[in-house]
C-alpha cells in the first residue's frame, strides 16, 4: 500500500507537460515522451488527450508534428494539470474521502488535512516553468 493516492496518470501528466514545456517551439511527439517517461503509449495518449481537452496543450500532425504548450509555461500551475485529470478540487472535501458527520471522531484527521494542504499548496505554487529546466536536461 502507498500513502499518497496519486495515480500513474497524475505523475505521467506532470512529467509530460514538463517535457512539452522544455521542448518549447520544437514540440515533442508522444513516442519520445513515452520513451523518456518509461510508460506505455496507450496510457500516455489518454493522459495527453485530457491535457488537450483542458486547453493546456495542443498537438500538430505530420512528420514535424508534436505537442506544444497552449499558453506560457509560467501561467500554468501543476494544480491546473492535476484538475485536468481529476476534476476540480474541492478543498473542503478533499481530506478523507468520507462525508463528515456529527458522530465521527476527530483524531488524525488533522494530520491528514495538513498533509493534504501541503500537497495542494505545492500544486498551487508550482508553475510548469519551474519544472522546465529539470525536464530540459534529459531532452
Amino acid at each position: 500500500m502507498k500513502i499518497l493516492a496519486l495515480s500513474e496518470a497524475n505523475i505521467l501528466s506532470f512529467h509530460s507537460i514538463a517535457l512539452i514545456a522544455a521542448a518549447e517551439e520544437k514540440g515533442i511527439n508522444a513516442l519520445k515522451i513515452s520513451e523518456l517517461t518509461n510508460c506505455s503509449r496507450n496510457h500516455l495518449f489518454k493522459v495527453l488527450e485530457s491535457l488537450v481537452k483542458a486547453g493546456l496543450i495542443y498537438s500538430t500532425r505530420g512528420p514535424r508534428g508534436g505537442y506544444f504548450l497552449n499558453k506560457p509555461a509560467d501561467t500554468i500551475y501543476l494544480l491546473d494539470v492535476f484538475e485536468a485529470l481529476n476534476g476540480k478540487v474541492d478543498e473542503n472535501e478533499i481530506c478523507i474521502g468520507r462525508n463528515r458527520n456529527e458522530k465521527s471522531f476527530i483524531f488524525f484527521e488533522q494530520l491528514c488535512q495538513e498533509l493534504t494542504n501541503k500537497f495542494l499548496n505545492y500544486l498551487k505554487n508550482t508553475k510548469i516553468a519551474d519544472l522546465k529546466d529539470h525536464a530540459g536536461k534529459i531532452l
Binding site: 502507498k2 512529467h15 518509461n38 501541503k118
Partner: peptide, 22 residues
C-alpha cells in the same frame, strides 16, 4: 510515487514532496 524502477529524469521532477508527505 509510482514506483517506477527506471526514472530517466535522474532526480525526482517533483522534488521531495511525495516522499516527505508519505
Amino acid at each position: 510515487p509510482i514506483d517506477n524502477p527506471i526514472c530517466p529524469f535522474g532526480t525526482c521532477l517533483m522534488g521531495d514532496i511525495c516522499h516527505d508527505i508519505s
